[in-house]
């Protein structure tokens, strides 16, 4: 598995790439180009899912249950961002995320859609603006089934089965998180 933070292109890098794409590939109506802007694995929600794997507890017979087995994945959410240039100064940003899945969680696949536009206040400066929206990509934690012997079988939050609250109460603490749904980006660049 690859390290997550190192794989995610920062927005600054993406921004420069976006500007570069628009700046270097003038388009005409006959010449619409699509450029790869960014590709990375992992996301804040992916990180969050991973952090759920820290810790563990003993079962009644003393055997250790590690959370890692439930929040481990062999495939980190892969994000691909593309820019389709419509004019010299405008383009459509789009992309997708593959999502990821562990035994007790899933990050849904996602779609990203938005636009990028830029203007040149001076010959040596560029003001860029982009707005993107993400659909899907929710992190959903799944419950476990805990067998407490004579005390019954309950649907529980896997992480809290032995360490917190009545079984039914633990379900309130299942993680259900949405990714950043809207991303606004403004950039001013001066070349000298």
């Amino acid at each position: 598995m690859r390290e997550r933070s190192g794989n995610r292109g920062g927005s600054r890098t993406t921004a420069l790439l976006l500007s570069a794409c628009l700046g270097t590939s003038p388009a005409t109506a006959q010449d619409i180009t699509t450029s790869l802007v960014d590709i990375h694995q992992g996301s804040p929600l992916s990180d969050r899912a991973r952090s759920l794997g820290d810790g563990g507890y003993e079962l009644q017979n003393g055997s250790w249950v590690s959370f890692n087995q439930w929040y481990h994945t062999n495939w980190l959410d892969l994000h691909v961002d593309l820019l389709t240039q419509l004019t010299e100064n405008t383009g459509i940003l789009w992309g997708f995320g593959t999502g990821e899945k562990g035994e007790k969680y899933s990050v849904e696949p996602s779609l990203k859609l938005g636009f990028l536009t830029q203007t040149h206040p001076t010959p040596k400066s560029t003001l860029s603006f982009s707005l993107t929206s993400t659909i899907g990509g929710n992190l959903t934690e799944k419950p476990c089934v805990a067998n407490y012997g004579d005390l019954g079988i309950y649907s529980v939050n896997c992480r809290l089965a032995a360490t917190d609250m009545a079984p039914e109460e633990t379900l309130k603490y299942l993680v259900n998180a949405k990714p950043e749904s809207m991303h606004l980006w403004l950039n001013y660049r001066v070349t000298f």
Binding site: Y57, L59, Q60, N61, G62, A146, N147, A162
Partner: peptide
């Protein structure tokens, strides 16, 4: 006490 509070099994 800790084992009495823990599950027998979990999946």
């Amino acid at each position: 006490l800790s084992r009495a509070l823990a599950p027998v099994s979990i999946r």
